[in-house]
Each structure stands twice: as C-alpha cells, then as structure tokens.
C-alpha cells in the first residue's frame, strides 16, 4: 500500500528493461553467429540455410505458409476449446460425485501418459482426418485443465463453503459465486499450459497424418519440405510454429493477468 521508493522503482524499471533486452541480445548474437558460420564454411542451403535465406523463403512462400498456419491454428484452437470445456466440465462432475471421479480419473491419467504420437495413427484410421487431429490436440491438452480445476475446486476455503451452506445457497449459486471464482486462478493456470500443449498435439497429429499422404497444416509443410530437401522452407515453417506457440502463450498469460489483476496474488505487484 505504501508508496514505492524512487530508488527501488528505478531498479524495478531496470530489471524490466534487462528482462527484455537480454534475450534480444542473445537472439542477435545467435543469428549473427549462425550467419557467420554459414558464410565462412560456405554451407549449402540444403544443409543449413542462412538466416537471410530463411526470411526470404518466408516471404516468397508466404501464401502457402500462411494458409498452412491458419489450418494449424484452427485445429489448435478447436482442440484447446474442447480441452477447456471438457477439462472444466469433467472436474466439476468429479467434484460432485466421488463415484464418477474414482471410476474415470485413472483413464484420464492413462490418456495423458500414453504418448499421443502413438495414438495418432489409430485415430487417423477411425476418424476423418480433421477430427482426428482435433482429438489429438484435445487429448494432450485436456489433462492439465482437468487436474488444475480439480485442485482449485478442492482448495476452496472451508469456512466460505460453510457460509454458503449457512445461507442455504443452491448448488447453482454455490457453483457460480463460490466454486468457479475460487478455482479460477487454477483453471487459468491449466489453460495456459493447455494452449501450448494443444499446438503440440495438433502438430504431432498433422505429422502422423502427413506421412499418410494428407493434410495441409504447418507440420505437414515441414514433413513435405523434408522429403523435398527444401530446408529453407522447413526452417521458415518451424519459425512460424514457434512464433504461434509464443503468441498463444502470451495471449493466455495476458488474459489470465487481466482477469486476476484485481485480487489474486499471482497477478499483483510485490509492493501492493
């Protein structure tokens, strides 16, 4: 509550600047070194393209890559939404019924620990390709939402629960005014993990599907470029995937911060 002292404010600002500047410096050094190594050793682009070649490919192949990026992002988004709804709904059901929890939770864990790359080919046999990819994204992403929401629902202040009981709150009121808000920080934490994971799930499934001869997502572009020794395009697609992952994470982190900033410790400054 007390005013921040100027000196500590300055160090805070400096720390913020450092946290931004240092990774940028590392990136610059890395890219320069990469470029230098390619030039000095005269490495051909089909072994290791220079950063410039990757950027040129990104621009020249943009129509193809952009369409593929949209395909992958759409799958990721569908998988993420399914994971969010499925994970939260399942956690709420588990919190209402021990029977359901004991019966189903082991299978949720089995789904989580079985490598999705091993499940993907099976799913591709039984489901249409797009559905199979979305299901893969869902399988990888829903567990953290389920686990975190369950933890959040179990961490509700007992006295607050008692208060709702004292005032004869209906189950729906308890859900809306107590359970969901109390579990919200945990749910958002789960969603933040799920965002990155659903991208991974989508990519894994696309690669599995790509080797079966279908698909048009970014991962398929990477596989296809590999077969054709179009290494610059592989790098360009990889760069786009990476950027997509970073953007997804940042959007979810920002959303989480905006939702929690008024009250939750995780979103508050140290001095408030």
């Amino acid at each position: 509550m007390s005013a921040v002292e100027p000196s500590s404010l300055r160090t805070n600002h400096e720390r913020g600047a450092l946290r931004f500047v240092l990774p940028v410096v590392v990136l610059t050094i890395g890219v320069l070194a990469w470029d230098l190594i390619v030039r000095l050793n005269q490495i051909p682009p089909y072994v290791l393209p220079s950063p410039g070649a990757v950027v040129r490919t990104l621009i020249s192949d943009w129509p193809i890559l952009w369409a593929s990026l949209l395909t992958t992002l759409l799958t990721t988004f569908e998988g993420f939404v399914a994971a969010a709804i499925g994970g939260i709904a399942l956690a709420l059901l588990f919190s209402r019924s021990k029977w359901l929890e004991y019966s189903l939770f082991p299978y949720a864990i089995i789904l989580q620990v079985t490598p999705v790359i091993a499940i993907a080919p099976l799913l591709l046999i039984y489901l249409p390709q797009h559905a199979a990819v979305v299901v893969c994204a869902w399988i990888v992403a829903f567990f953290p939402v389920l686990a975190n929401t369950t933890l959040g629902l179990k961490s509700i202040d007992r006295n607050l629960s008692g208060l709702f009981q004292l005032y004869h709150a209906s189950p729906l009121q308890t859900l809306r005014y107590l359970k969901l808000p109390a579990a919200l920080p945990y749910i958002l934490g789960g969603l933040r993990i799920a965002g990155g994971l659903s991208l991974i799930g989508a990519v894994v499934a696309e690669i599995a599907a790509g080797s079966a001869g279908a698909g048009s997502g970014l991962a398929y572009r990477i596989a296809e470029s590999g077969y054709r020794l179009n290494i610059p395009r592989m790098f360009a697609a990889l760069l786009l995937l990476s950027l997509a992952g970073i953007v997804i994470y940042m959007v979810l982190a920002l959303a989480s911060h905006l939702i929690l900033r008024r009250w939750h410790e995780s979103a508050l400054g140290k001095d408030s």
């Binding site: 006295n159 607050l160 208060l163 004292l166 005032y167 005014y177 808000p181 109390a182 939750h264």
Partner: peptide
C-alpha cells in the same frame, strides 16, 4: 430461517475476488 442467524468466523472469510 436463512436470515435468522449471522455467523462471524475466526478468519474474516471474505471472497478475495469480490
């Protein structure tokens, strides 16, 4: 019935999000 008792807990027991 619901309104005939008020209860104050050992901790403030407030909803931090409200």
């Amino acid at each position: 019935a619901a309104q005939s008792i008020g209860f104050v807990f050992q901790e403030p027991t407030l909803m931090p999000w409200a």
